[in-house]
């Protein structure tokens, strides 16, 4: 199990970031590349709404700043229409738990100062916020706000204290290296989210959710913001390129068909054990019962 490791041959400080001689990447024209581009187009479609909105947002901001330079230098300050709209949504829906100035309310909700837009995007876009009731963990549910409203909310919270921002769709797309993504997924994500993102149990009723319904930007912002008990994977720990690789792996494997028949949840021995008893052994017991019965 020991192998020569690139990190050993060179002095550690000489090692350039992302040098991976032990991993050859698939080149264009391979099935992997084809799969990537296929994924890419799906990913594009999926984040099309967000993308359009972001573009519109940038455009509006640019127009606004040229037309009314006296009021605001950049998007996302008081006076910006998105900011104001975001503030209004915040004051209608979030204020009771997170406080009038995002400072949080003891025992109800944490401070949102400095959490960044990525966290807001993840929490609201997956329907976790607004919370229905306090519990061990917020569950994902149908999203409450429109994409436009989410954007406004993101702008508002981002403007108050900064923090990890929502990346552009280019950054968050899923066109990364599939094999690298798989390795990184197994090292960093599989311990909680299971081998291929089926999710798993954590201590005392908490759980790592399934990644079945997660879109690219949600996975990206989750890694960036570390919602609830999930550790944070900042850009210096997992570069945007590596995050894209992970997203590509998750989305590719999620959508690929199972070559060996019904996937039975891809959860391994527990499901297989149930099948052998409830299907295999039961069918045979029925069979011998029939054989032993009088004609």
């Amino acid at each position: 199990m020991s192998t020569t490791n690139p990190q050993s041959d060179a002095q550690p400080d000489d090692v350039p970031r992302r040098a991976r001689s032990r991993r050859t990447r698939p080149t264009e024209g391979t099935p992997a590349a084809a799969a990537r581009s296929r994924r890419l187009s799906k990913a594009r479609r999926r984040v099309a709404n967000v993308a359009g909105l972001m573009a519109a947002l940038v455009l509006t901001g640019a127009l606004y700043s040229t037309l009314a330079p006296a009021h605001a230098d950049e998007v996302g300050a008081a006076g910006d229409p998105d900011y104001d709209a975001g503030q209004e949504i915040y004051e209608n829906s979030c204020i009771s738990c997170h406080g009038s100035n995002l400072e949080g309310v003891d025992g109800r909700g944490p401070s949102l100062i400095g959490v960044g837009g990525a966290a807001v995007y993840f929490q609201v876009h997956t329907g976790r916020m607004p919370l229905v009731r306090q519990g061990e963990q917020a569950a994902d549910k149908p999203v409450v706000f429109s994409d436009e409203e989410i954007d406004q909310l993101v702008t508002y919270v981002q403007a108050n204290g900064g923090g990890p921002a929502v990346p552009s769709d280019e950054v968050a797309s899923s066109d990364g290296d599939l094999a690298l993504g798989g390795e990184l997924f197994r090292l960093n994500c599989a311990s909680c989210h299971n081998f291929v993102g089926e999710g798993g149990a954590l201590s005392s009723g908490k759980y790592a959710p399934s990644l079945h319904n997660a879109d690219d930007l949600e996975i990206y912002t989750a890694m960036l913001s570390g919602p609830e008990n999930m550790p944070v994977f900042g850009d210096n720990q997992l570069s945007p390129e590596e995050k894209r690789a992970i997203i590509n792996y998750i989305q590719t494997v999620k959508e690929m068909p199972d070559p060996g028949g019904a996937g039975i949840g891809r959860t391994g021995p527990v499901a297989e054990g149930l099948v052998i008893w409830l299907v295999g052994m039961s069918a045979l017991m029925f069979g011998i019962f029939w054989m032993g019965s009088k004609a």
Partner: peptide, 20 residues
């Protein structure tokens, strides 16, 4: 019925593990 899809599990690495 698919059983033990080893390609989904990945190669063994002492530093990696999956839930369940």
């Amino acid at each position: 019925v698919q059983i033990n899809p080893i390609w989904l599990w990945g190669p063994y690495n002492p530093a990696q593990v999956s839930a369940a």
